[in-house]
Design a binder for these strands. Structure first.
Lengths: 157, 157
DNA sequence: GGCCGATCCATGGGATCCCATGCATTGTCT
DNA sequence: AGACAATGCATGGGATCCCATGGATCGGCC
């Protein structure tokens, strides 16, 4: 369906204005935004909230720490790191152009309630119909049996 | 919105079964599917239909040609190449697991007409609301003024 | 305290994606 | 025929994404 493909592509071709002005990629800006909403108690927390893999977030966050936009403080559990915006990072989130993913939420919030409910219902029924919801629980920290560590022997047949 | 993010993630974590069995990535399988629907008169044609960049398609198609799943034949205009599936490629498209992007279309086709119309309308109004449609015309070969060749001086400010 | 399984994150490897650019080809104009 | 702008694709560079894995840390059990 063309509309869905366009949406996906828009999200992919995220605004380059932030990059031109601030030297930030869309992924970096998205992580900044996520931390602006709430600091994270771990990298895995960020990964869950951005719905990307831990290893991807590790790389992006490292760059943001380099740029002094994010601080990374060892937690009590020394395997973890607490992540929050620096003052500089906060200014950037406030002044940088909005990512499509972020401004889309504004569009939805501004919708009349009835229309918004319809839209949400349509999206959710579609996500259920194509099995997208079965991908999510692992990422959303819902109660789940521990997932076996990934290995070659666990590759689905 | 969670449902939409789940959908996007599902598409990203495309089925790994094809990869395990056939050594094909989701992108490769998607291109096979697109060529199965109709051979392409050029790489740009494939790029438009997959809504990805020409350079990405160039790489993916090169690999499919290597694997003898696609043939690449110079066209009359020697800048272009005509692409079509080999017999081997056709067998694979028929027997390989369906990509979520492809099976999603089946889900939609199987919907009752009223529900389908609602869903399509929801997606299209959302796409319009977030400006996704303004990204697309260039890719869809619609009549448009020629886009200037990309160069550093054309980077949006 | 020692052992072991579980967990967290950094890192490697590979693929894909985009933008930019070079080179070959084509079409148009003089 | 020659010049030039436009077009198509391969390729380089960089970023991100995922899976796999290693090393450090933690928690539970003996």
């Amino acid at each position: 369906m063309v509309a869905l493909r366009r949406i996906v592509r828009l999200f992919r071709l995220a605004d380059r204005e932030a990059e031109a002005q601030y030297g930030l990629s869309a992924a970096q800006l998205f992580v900044l935004h996520v931390l602006w909403q709430e600091p994270a108690m771990s990298l895995a927390d960020v990964a869950a909230r951005t719905m990307t893999d831990q290893s991807s977030v590790s790389t992006v966050v490292a760059k943001l720490v380099d740029k002094k936009l994010v601080t990374k403080k060892p937690a009590t559990d020394r395997r973890r790191a607490e992540l929050r915006l620096t003052a500089k990072g906060e200014i950037i989130v406030r002044t940088a152009p909005r990512l499509p993913q972020v401004s889309a939420l504004d569009v939805i919030a501004a919708m009349p309630g009835k229309q918004r409910a319809e839209l949400v219902r349509a999206f959710e029924s579609f996500a259920a119909a194509i099995g997208a919801n079965e991908m999510a629980p692992r990422m959303l920290f819902e109660d789940e049996p521990a997932r076996p560590r990934r290995s070659r022997t666990d590759v689905p047949a």
